[in-house]
């Protein structure tokens, strides 16, 4: 009896989700816009009362104009694509290396003992300090930025992976032993599925870190990129352009973060 009623309640939940948007959903969306509207209003009021502030703060109108014009500004998008290209490359390389290192270290305590001290020392280093070194070796193009990005992304995945492997429930390992799982089977059917959620949340964070690494490196020195744009615009005191560029950055990396979240929800539907 209880089973049947539980099943019915699940079905009815699914039905109501399919029924479309209700009033509460719309209220929720509107509520989400309130902080943004309040912020822009305060910004506008501040400049209204003290126009000289617009020298630092620019104005909502000017920033909006910049954003509008930037859409069709090919020079602007050349810089954006330079940054994004480097970000994706460092995201990819750093993730692959970090996951590989994290898992292999977790599988062998001896490798862990050998590598761990160096890993934690390197990870505590402020990576931006390495940017001049990487740029000196790899130049002002993509390679130098990618190196800084990789140096951040690698450790995010490395440590997330290790935390994931550690979250294997001892009872699950015991079950695997009583079922005579081979090493291979234990890896693919137990270790990897257990580690997946940590890897995924690592990947989500990693994109933000990749962007951080790349933009920092561009600010130190680069031929092109959004970091260079920000340096250039702020040197010229074009604050509307600085804020506009920052907003684009937020939109792009926030968008990727959001999409990753949706994908994660899909893949991790068992959670």
């Amino acid at each position: 009896m209880t089973m049947i009623s539980q099943k019915q309640s699940m079905v009815s939940e699914a039905d109501s989700a399919r029924a479309g948007w209700r009033r509460e959903d719309w209220t929720q969306v509107i509520e989400r816009f309130i902080p943004g509207i309040v912020f822009v209003t305060l910004w506008w009021i501040a400049i209204r009362f003290n126009p000289s502030l617009s020298f630092y703060l620019s104005t909502p109108g000017d920033v909006a104009t910049f954003l509008g014009e930037s859409v069709s500004d090919s020079e602007f998008w050349r810089n954006v694509s330079s940054t994004m290209q480097a970000t994706f490359i460092s995201f990819f390389i750093g993730s692959v290396l970090g996951i590989a290192a994290g898992i292999s270290v977790s599988l062998s305590p001896r490798v862990e003992a050998a590598i761990e001290p160096y890993a934690s020392a390197l990870n505590s280093l402020p990576r931006i300090a390495l940017a001049p070194v990487f740029i000196a070796f790899l130049g002002l193009g993509t390679a130098g930025k990618v190196a800084v990005g990789v140096s951040l992304v690698f450790f995010v995945l490395y440590y997330n992976c290790r935390a994931g492997v550690k979250s294997v429930d001892p009872d699950w390992s015991m079950l695997a032993r009583t079922l005579n799982f081979s090493k291979r089977k234990t890896f693919f059917s137990l270790l990897l599925p257990v580690t997946w959620p940590s890897i995924f949340s690592g990947l989500r964070l990693a994109f933000t870190y990749a962007l951080l690494g790349v933009v920092s490196s561009e600010i130190v020195a680069a031929r092109a990129g959004m970091g260079q744009l920000i340096m250039l615009y702020s040197a010229q005191f074009r604050m509307d352009a600085v804020y506009g560029t920052l907003i684009w950055m937020g939109v792009i990396s926030g968008g990727v973060y959001w999409i990753a979240g949706r994908v994660e929800k899909r893949i991790m539907s068992w959670k």
Partner: peptide
């Protein structure tokens, strides 16, 4: 030999069917 514990030890990322199939996979 079959071994059963106090805790169900189901793998949460597998559906019921897939959990039952596990010993056969091994």
């Amino acid at each position: 030999i079959g071994y059963m514990f106090a805790r169900d030890c189901l793998f949460p990322w597998r559906r019921a069917q897939k959990n039952v199939e596990m010993p056969l996979e091994a």
